[in-house]
């Protein structure tokens, strides 16, 4: 067997093992159930909006012409924060959990590269959290189509798939953050504290960025925030949070011209991808040190 197929086989073995472990975890069941509940509630309220024939909102699907996509966009806004918590909850102790269970030593003495272990885990958590999201969204989409008796156009379905891709990138960025936290800490408790700290910090950065930006241009709180007018430091604070680049709702609406967080669609997608790669590089570096075991 070639070196590549050997590596692929080991990678799949790690991914399969971690996927099975992840879906058996209590935290997956708890946060997964909360996610499904929030997604359902969001879809319900989205459908209520459609029934009330509310006016179109900028950057969101038109309730009149894209009723199912609109309901799904509301579902996203209710549930995506929980999805990031789920992604972080699965990955924050990916390595420290193995260390405290003494299985990391068992892995380290075997002919498997640490990169393979790290990326095997990444794919496993993506399959668990992303899989739950994809299944829930597809079931809701079909359910909403039946309930509203509207058949989405092929374009709407394409935009749904695109938006799901964006959400999956968003989930990946939090899995990458979790893996970084796990590679930097020594115990599961440290990892948990680190994960909570980072999650809260990202939120604080966003609010601080908005507050500082508004203060700099002498504006009070507004629903339509003029990000483009913000000074650089305020923008950076906002852009650090992968959530500020989440253009899933825009994708559902096929509105690619609207600026999100002061950036165009392509720039947001690039930064979303960067927010996956940036944490993975130091995670790889720290986990690859020989004393990481």
């Amino acid at each position: 067997m070639s070196e590549f197929s050997e590596s692929a086989y080991r990678f799949l073995a790690i991914a399969q093992k971690d996927f099975q472990s992840a879906v058996k975890k209590k935290r997956f069941i708890i946060f997964g159930a909360i996610f499904v509940l929030f997604a359902l509630v969001g879809a319900y309220y989205g459908n209520v909006d459609v029934a009330r024939s509310i006016a179109p909102i900028s950057g969101a699907p038109n309730p009149a012409t894209q009723p199912v996509n609109y309901a799904i966009s509301v579902s996203y806004s209710y549930s995506e924060a929980i999805l990031t918590i789920l992604a972080l909850a699965l990955s924050y102790d990916a390595l420290t959990g193995e260390r405290s269970a003494r299985t990391l030593v068992q892995l380290a003495v075997r002919p498997i590269k640490r990169t393979t272990i790290l990326f095997g885990k990444f794919v496993a958590y993506l399959a668990a959290a992303g899989g739950l999201f994809v299944v829930t969204t597809l079931v809701l989409y079909i359910g909403l189509s039946v309930v509203t008796r509207s058949v989405p156009s092929s374009g709407d379905v394409d935009y749904l798939i695109l938006s799901m891709g964006i959400i999956l990138l968003y989930v990946m960025s939090f899995i990458a953050i979790g893996l970084l936290i796990s590679s930097l800490t020594r115990t599961s408790l440290d990892s948990l504290l680190g994960a909570v700290f980072v999650w809260v910090l990202l939120l604080v950065f966003t609010y601080a960025g908005v507050a500082l930006g508004l203060a700099a241009i002498n504006l009070s709180a507004t629903s339509d925030i003029p990000y483009t007018l913000f000074p650089g430091y305020a923008k950076i604070l906002i852009w650090i949070n992968p959530g500020s680049h989440n253009v899933a709702v825009q994708s559902l609406a096929a509105d690619f011209s609207k600026l999100t967080s002061g950036l165009n669609y392509t720039a947001n997608v690039i930064l979303l991808i960067a927010s996956i790669i940036v944490p993975l590089i130091p995670a790889y570096y720290f986990f690859n040190r020989s004393d990481a075991v």
């Binding site: 472990s21 058996k24 269970a101 003494r102 299985t103 030593v105 068992q106 003495v109």
Partner: peptide, 15 residues
């Protein structure tokens, strides 16, 4: 070609 038995061998408890 090398095997290792740690003092407290770790395994996946739910497997």
């Amino acid at each position: 070609r090398v095997g290792y038995l740690p003092e407290r061998p770790g395994f996946y408890g739910n497997f």
